[in-house]
Amino acid sequence: MPRLSILDLAFVPDVLTPGDALRNTLDLAQHAERWGYHRFWLAEHHNMVGIASAATAVVIGYVAGGTRTIRVGSGGIMLPNHAPLVIAEQFGTLESLYPGRIDLGLGRAPGTDPLTIRALRRNVTAADSFPQDVLELQHYFEEPGPAQAVRAIPGAGLRVPLWILGSSLFGSQLAGVTGLPYAFASHFAPTHLMNALHIYRKEFQPSPQLDRPYCAAGVNVIVADTDAEARRLFTSPQQQFTRLIRGTPGKLLPPIDDINTFWAPHEEQQASAMLKYAFVGSPETVRRGLEAFVRDTGVDELIVAAAIYDHSARLRSYELLAELWKDVSAASPAVVSAT
């Protein structure tokens, strides 16, 4: 069965500060390491009051420094916002400090709005050069040639494993032809998941990093002792997605008894479509849903997001998920190894 990993966006509940959220992120990572999760990813978003991971490389260092064995990385770094050399230096530094534990997932979207793109001093057309920027970044992690004038220090020769992230079909083809592992953001953009996985596997060419296709999919998972309790916790991400549709994002809101008092019918339709791959319920309910998802997709890894308002409830959800997945994995063939 697939590996189980975490994507944590360092959500900021409405009564907490970004500092509180980041400390909760580290606490979650430390628990996840004990529970057997394979990797712990953070993502770059800017100008969002409800997400505390804007300085993604800094947060990765904080989490890696507070853990010992779990892989830590980006899901992802939005490469159009940065010069490839700078990212190579940042992640070369992380790899030097925490060898063998750092992942570098790369996205093409800016992770923010057009006005903030200008504040980042990036051109709105920067995404057009994403394939070339990926190759340049990859080059900085290779052994430098004797005539190479520009090197990433630290970074050169460290071969930090790269991932291509995507929410459309573009990244799947790029990941395939470059022979890199691929992660699809089906936790918020499920529409093209199946086509993207098909294209990736069809286009895949072996590379020094990877000899066969390896794909992960993002899913929302909330587990509680009962279906009713889990559905109530789920109203926090439902409110969050509704506010995104309204253009009024904010901090994570507490769960409510009846989500239908919050959203209009058209908002319910849109938010529910975005949350198509949300598995919510008791351990048995979630197990059935995830097993069906794995059968349908054939993914090698599940990257789990859980926008749960209360930190103790979030820990409990991930603990229950780890327990049920150990039972599933014990009864199934081992996962194909990759980064």
Rank of each mutant, 00 (worst) to 15 (best):
L315T: 05
P213H: 08
G145Y: 04
T261H: 10
G66K: 12
F91D: 13
P18D: 07
D128V: 01
D27S: 15
T116K: 06
G50V: 08
Q138W: 04
E33M: 10
M1Q: 04
A313L: 13
L253M: 14
F170W: 07
T17R: 12
G19E: 15
L22P: 12
D20R: 05
D310C: 05
L94M: 13
P206F: 05
K326V: 00
A189H: 10
P131E: 10
A307D: 14
S172T: 12
E203N: 05
A147Q: 14
Q173N: 15
G247L: 03
Q173V: 09
E268Q: 14
V49M: 13
L115G: 10
P146E: 11
L9Y: 14
R316G: 13
Y98T: 07
Y62P: 00
K326L: 05
S129I: 00
S236H: 10
T69Q: 15
S332P: 01
L104A: 02
L244T: 01
E95C: 06
V15C: 09
L320E: 12
N195H: 15
Y309M: 03
A57V: 00
A147P: 00
N260L: 02
A32H: 08
I308Q: 07
A273D: 06
A126C: 00
D133C: 01
S186Q: 05
V58E: 15
R121C: 09
A271W: 10
Y309C: 08
S5Q: 00
L16Y: 14
L79T: 04
P283N: 02
D296S: 13
A273F: 05
A32V: 06
N123S: 15
E44V: 02
I303A: 09
S329M: 05
D128R: 14
A43Y: 07
D133E: 10
Q209V: 00
A307P: 12
V12I: 15
L193M: 09
D8H: 10
E301I: 01
T191W: 11
F130P: 01
E229V: 02
W325Q: 03
P237V: 04
Q30M: 14
L85M: 09
E142Y: 01
S329Q: 15
S332D: 03
T235H: 12
V299N: 07
A156N: 06
A64C: 08
W263Y: 13
V160K: 06
S236M: 11
Q240M: 15
Y214I: 03
S236N: 07
M78L: 13
V219H: 01
R3N: 09
T248S: 11
S168F: 04
I259T: 08
V150E: 05
A183V: 02
H311F: 13
G66H: 12
D225A: 15
A322T: 05
G171W: 09
W41A: 04
T297G: 03
G76R: 10
E143T: 14
P213V: 07
V328P: 06
Q269V: 04
S272P: 02
D8S: 06
F241R: 10
V335Q: 06
L180Q: 02
P208Y: 02
R246M: 00
G105Y: 03
S272I: 00
D113S: 12
K326N: 13
Q132A: 15
